[in-house]
Amino acid sequence: MKALFFHAEKCVGCKLCHLACSSQNEQVFNPRLARLKITSCYDRNGLTVEGKTCDLCMSCVESCPVDAIVEKNGRLAFDEDLCTDCGLCVDICPHEVIVGKDRGIGVCVQCRSCVNWCPTEALTFEEVNK
């Protein structure tokens, strides 16, 4: 199985990955709706770069009481018709990368738009547990 990997030392904090994800999956330019969270900020300690991406840990799949999120061929798939908007998956995702919406949720579907847009290869798509 392959998943997203984040390499903080390469990230420049441009947020193009967020825009790529939200435009691909939500049809809007809105970094807050991206299914990954990359931050690059100056705080009192200097520069802090952090990235949260889906690593296919399957917590959401296991938590969903109605099987609205399933794994198919190494990718997550979401069925909005089944979803009851209980929000369990959003709360349980250890990486906080499931986007809660007015109706349904957004999970990383490995479209790799973020990887394609990242200018510095700070995001890669690689074999998990290799």
Binding site: E9, V12, G13, C14, K15, L16, L19, G46, V49, T120
Partner: peptide, 14 residues
């Protein structure tokens, strides 16, 4: 220590 970009910039001049 690191390169840094403005929003939506792939050139990261910082």
């Amino acid at each position: 220590r690191a390169k840094k970009a403005c929003f939506a910039c792939p050139l990261a001049c910082g």
